[in-house]
Design a protein around this nucleic acid. Sequence first.
DNA 1: CCGATTTGCCTAAAGGCTTTAGGCAAACTA
DNA 2: TAGTTTGCCTAAAGCCTTTAGGCAAATCGG
Lengths: 191, 191
Amino acid sequence: MARAGLSAERLTRAGAELADEVGFDQVTVSALARRFDVKVASLYSHLKNSHELKTRITLLALEELADRASDAVAGRAGKDALTALANVYRDYAREHPGRYAATQFRLDTKTAVAVAGVRHAQLTRAILRGYDLTEPDQTHAVRLLGSVFHGYVSLELGGGFSHSAPDTQETWERALDALDALLRNWPSPTS
Amino acid sequence: MARAGLSAERLTRAGAELADEVGFDQVTVSALARRFDVKVASLYSHLKNSHELKTRITLLALEELADRASDAVAGRAGKDALTALANVYRDYAREHPGRYAATQFRLDTKTAVAVAGVRHAQLTRAILRGYDLTEPDQTHAVRLLGSVFHGYVSLELGGGFSHSAPDTQETWERALDALDALLRNWPSPTS
DNA sequence: CCGATTTGCCTAAAGGCTTTAGGCAAACTA
DNA sequence: TAGTTTGCCTAAAGCCTTTAGGCAAATCGG
């Protein structure tokens, strides 16, 4: 009986594709086995359990996203960089909804979160070089940008801005205008 | 054999409590049956299926949240209202993580989304009366505020701002300062 | 080239969750 | 109080996860 050539990597990639097709929480070990035309138990030689599969997909997505983001901000600054980074997140979520959903998966491996999370934070921090912010404002700004990107993308993906006027594309552009203006003129604490 | 006095409402409330205790996606018909010390099949007289249970919990959470938000913005304006509204979302998420997670549950009943979503949008719109924005900027601002609130709360809840300095409370305050400044000085399109 | 070992996928089976069908007794209703 | 409705039950089927143990294919040492 010929071997299927399974491996944790192949399973993870296939799982990511599956997630994009049917949704991240429909990704199951069974479904993946069907996709490889293999018995379910066979996957357990490569994966500890269902949770590990999801974790791996999450990490894959976070890395892909960070790779794209790195490329996008390279050689850009200021609003140009801001827009490029923002669009990476938005486009990735639209192209790969399942993988994007995976990035919201709660990772228990604290270190894994750290590794992936830190890389994204650093990218965001990089685009702030074009603006005149010092610590701790820079950190506040990183968090705010992360919130806006993630929040917008999630709401749009989830149908939160249900097809009403004006166009969401326009809102997106105006939101980036607004963030740019904000970063160029960051307010001091009210206290 | 004494009756347990089940009903869709009681099950929904208990489901919401369960969600806060063990997480929204651990809410199962079985777990709920155990909680009422009743056989699983009994719940199917009150609920069409597992999906309906989750949908009901979602709607419950959205309403609770909107109720709190209504109270909070009543009689306030400008930054005061902005802060009050923002804190409602954040506090609710912290007090009721499971219910808050439920609000992200994808509702298929388009009308239900509409009902709940519209109410929240209107509340956000209400606080914008204290600022000088006209359409379509008002809508853009509503969406931006929604994104920030949702994005921040999700990331904080998911451990995205992993216990690093500076304090997330400080970031939250500075983010609200920033949004206030932005709304008082909303930029015109770049184009 | 071949026997020994490792590795990969398989069968088998147990346990959990969902959902449907049909039954009996408690609670309304007249 | 008799009849009807309603609520919870037992039973059973189907799908998913996970573990245990087996056989054959791939790999390696002589």
